[in-house]
Simulated scan of single mutants.
Amino acid sequence: MIHEALLQLFHNRPELAAEVLRDALGAPVPGFTEARIEPADLTQVVPVEHRADLVVLLLDGRPVLGIVVEAQLGRDPDKEYAWPSYLVAVRARYRCRACLLVATTDEAIAAWCAEPIDLGPPDWVLRPYVLGPSAVPVVTEPSEARARPELAVLSAMAHGKSAAGLAIATAALAAAAGLDQERQDLYLDVVLSSLNEAARRSLEERMKSGYEFQSDFARSYVAKGRLEGQREGRLEEAASAVLKVLEARGLDIPPGVRERVLASTDMSELDRWLRRAAVIADAGALLDATSS
């Protein structure tokens, strides 16, 4: 989820690649009037198959910079050879300069990604731009978050477990409220999964109590959570009833049967098992589809 979420942020807002290069990493970014996503399949240019995670092309009447965006969550020695080929392919396809932007949520991986790649003499060296947690700005102001919601979500991913996590998440979700439903759902999942347990619970309580950023988006989330909670409660009660009937009849319940009953998420299945539990002579036969 983290890998795909990182890429989706750049895909949803192509300008984000240029913004973090310029503002967070201090890279020289040329002036541009358009940023768009281009095909990441670079096979047509390079003889062997190569597929980057994402290619963002900056244009000012013509291509001025190709940005290869890679989400990297672990060490991969093959990247030392793949990344240079991506840049060569982008440069050849669009006839412009190209650079590599690697996004990661781990500082140790960020340090590894930032190591220069020596391609050969005399001074042919690839130096990746790396967006690690420490390079991502802390976005807590709702106005800034609304202006750049993808950056706000990226801030939550990088700093959600810090002391400022709750304020970051609040700003990010306020910004997400104005987006389309698909992005709302994705950003909500990403933000909540990026918080520590205490911050996540606090945020959910604020949303339930009608906090200042309460919106159709927030109300929808709360209602969905309540319905899911009620459904889970009914499932637990039904599973408990099945086991209690078996126990009351003095039947020995095999561990596998107990685990399967407790893990069920199908109410009709549990209802069927409850009726079987009242008549079968052996608890091991509870899950047998042929049992009456």
Rank of each mutant, 00 (worst) to 15 (best):
276 R>N: 09
250 G>Q: 05
206 R>M: 13
193 S>M: 09
252 D>I: 03
175 A>F: 04
274 L>E: 03
11 H>F: 11
58 L>F: 05
49 E>P: 07
87 L>D: 00
233 G>E: 03
166 L>R: 08
140 T>K: 14
224 K>N: 13
203 L>E: 10
164 A>E: 15
160 G>R: 00
223 A>P: 00
281 A>W: 01
73 L>Y: 02
52 A>P: 10
91 R>G: 09
85 S>E: 13
11 H>V: 02
176 A>G: 12
165 G>Q: 12
186 L>T: 10
276 R>F: 08
195 L>C: 06
162 S>T: 15
283 A>L: 08
154 L>Y: 02
265 T>Q: 12
23 D>I: 04
205 E>R: 13
5 A>Y: 06
281 A>S: 11
236 E>M: 04
273 W>I: 07
160 G>F: 00
12 N>Q: 14
27 A>G: 14
254 P>Q: 11
114 A>M: 01
60 D>K: 08
283 A>C: 01
285 A>R: 08
239 A>I: 04
163 A>I: 04
129 Y>W: 15
255 P>F: 11
229 G>M: 04
221 Y>H: 15
167 A>I: 07
147 A>S: 11
221 Y>R: 14
200 R>Y: 03
23 D>F: 02
81 Y>Q: 15
266 D>H: 07
246 L>S: 11
292 S>Y: 09
33 T>S: 13
91 R>C: 13
197 E>F: 13
230 Q>E: 12
271 D>M: 12
247 E>P: 01
137 P>C: 07
99 C>P: 00
177 A>G: 08
234 R>V: 12
260 R>E: 15
170 T>W: 07
22 R>E: 15
184 Q>W: 09
200 R>L: 03
189 D>T: 12
16 L>P: 07
127 R>H: 13
259 E>Q: 11
17 A>S: 13
92 A>T: 05
28 P>Y: 03
90 V>Y: 00
34 E>T: 10
10 F>M: 02
130 V>H: 03
60 D>H: 15
235 L>D: 10
196 N>F: 00
25 L>K: 10
226 R>M: 11
204 E>K: 13
285 A>H: 08
144 E>G: 04
195 L>S: 08
106 D>G: 06
153 V>M: 02
56 V>F: 03
123 D>M: 13
81 Y>C: 09
261 V>D: 01
106 D>Y: 06
5 A>H: 02
229 G>V: 10
82 A>F: 13
177 A>F: 10
79 K>G: 10
167 A>T: 12
106 D>T: 01
17 A>H: 06
288 D>I: 06
233 G>A: 12
130 V>I: 05
47 P>Q: 09
106 D>C: 06
287 L>M: 12
120 G>Y: 06
99 C>G: 14
103 A>T: 01
55 V>A: 08
31 G>P: 09
149 P>I: 02
209 S>H: 08
41 D>Q: 11
151 L>N: 01
29 V>G: 09
215 S>M: 11
189 D>Q: 14
96 C>H: 06
208 K>F: 07
283 A>G: 06
204 E>V: 08
230 Q>M: 13
43 T>S: 10
228 E>V: 06
45 V>H: 00
189 D>G: 11
173 L>Q: 10
106 D>K: 11
3 H>W: 07
49 E>W: 04
66 G>T: 03
201 R>F: 07
61 G>R: 08
13 R>T: 14
28 P>W: 01
174 A>V: 07
254 P>G: 12
39 P>Y: 06
274 L>M: 10
284 G>T: 04
123 D>Y: 14
194 S>K: 01
70 E>W: 03
